[in-house]
Design a protein around this nucleic acid. Structure first.
Lengths: 197, 197
DNA sequence: CAAATATAAGTGAGCGTTCGCTTATTTAAA
DNA sequence: TTTAAATAAGCGAACGCTCACTTATATTTG
């Protein structure tokens, strides 16, 4: 039996993400992908049932990688300020190391493909960070809040900054770059909002 | 000369938005739209050059409507807390009155169609809200910040709550509904982050 | 009738997918 | 050790279908 050339499947996955980031979901096609990956269209169907399953599998694997990354050196028992800082650092670091992945996930976020990702994130992510939040409340390092309000304050600003960075500009500045200093400043304000007193 | 049936164009625009919200950009097609709107495909091309222009025009008109709405009873001279509250109220009200529009814009936000909207928003929106922000800083009702950091803290949390509401759940709760009380609570925290002292 | 709207019935390009076949590798009988 | 059967990877070409868009014709107004 002829063995699989794992390099081929890697090329397929890599090029698919690149294509979707560069041209959007519209610009993405199986034949085009085959050409870009240096592979026959039929080869793609050895690894994937159909286009749908291919894209879904990309979403899930990227999301898993991102999640694993963002939980590095993190524990739900950490003090609130420290734990949130670790979270922000990890997310920023991931975004710096894998900007394509990050853009890819942002594009997929508003498609039906993302439902599977949400389901996964709900169990793995929500549980750990839910515990972190409740712990922090008990230690009186965080004002008591509904989870959604907490999440909206604690993480949405970071993603907005990343969004500005990705599009290279905001509503008033024609060029914008996210760096460590800006992240620290924003995190400082978020902590101010969430800490008691 | 036979006059245009303006009702037809309205139907086309309305159904297009409904289709894109319900089935995403993939599920959207000109022939399908024609059937849904009770119109011949060719009729659509009387009003629109091509599919691209049709979608673009929807984006721009919805975004304009949303912007006008969110600036109601607002002036850049307002005190910071009051002005921000008006902004949040307007956005929430728009979202309650026109949930389809809001979802539509969120879907389009990560496609290439949105570039034209960004360009428009940059001049109309950024200028007014940029002035509001600088005024508030001068009155010492707002800590001095880069515009992007300000925006990320001041508005991103609201949009995150709307996102949770639209998908009907968050990472830990299987059902979530955004209401006035939650908005007030979140806005309170945001103001705490942004006010001096 | 003149002029524009509206339509039903296309048209051809491009899409996802599959078919018939070749190639590379393993297995195991001779 | 040789070698042929077995098997899955891999491929180029094309199929059927859907899509955005057009054409030829009819309809409705001034």
């Amino acid at each position: 039996m002829r063995p699989r050339d794992e390099h081929k499947e890697q090329q397929i996955r890599q090029k698919a993400i690149e294509m979707i980031v560069a041209e959007g979901l519209d610009g993405f096609g199986v034949n085009k992908l085959a050409k870009a990956a240096g592979v026959s269209p039929a080869t793609i169907y050895i690894y994937h049932k159909d286009k749908e399953e291919l894209i879904s599998s990309l979403c899930v694997s990227v999301a898993e990688k991102m999640m694993a990354f963002s939980l590095r050196s993190f524990s739900p028992d950490m003090d609130f300020a420290e734990g949130l800082k670790v979270q922000w650092r990890n997310r920023l670091e991931y975004f710096m190391e894998c900007p394509l992945d990050m853009e890819f996930i942002e594009i997929m976020r508003y498609t039906h493909f993302y439902e599977k990702v949400t389901a996964m994130l709900t169990v793995s992510f929500g549980q750990i960070l839910g515990v972190f939040m409740r712990n922090a409340e008990e230690k009186q390092q965080l004002v008591p809040l509904p989870f959604e309000v907490y999440w909206a304050i604690a993480y949405a600003p970071l993603y907005q900054l990343i969004k500005f960075h990705n599009q290279g500009n905001s509503y008033v500045n024609s060029s914008f770059t996210l760096d460590d200093k800006l992240m620290e400043q924003t995190l400082g304000l978020v902590l101010k909002a969430l800490k008691p007193l």
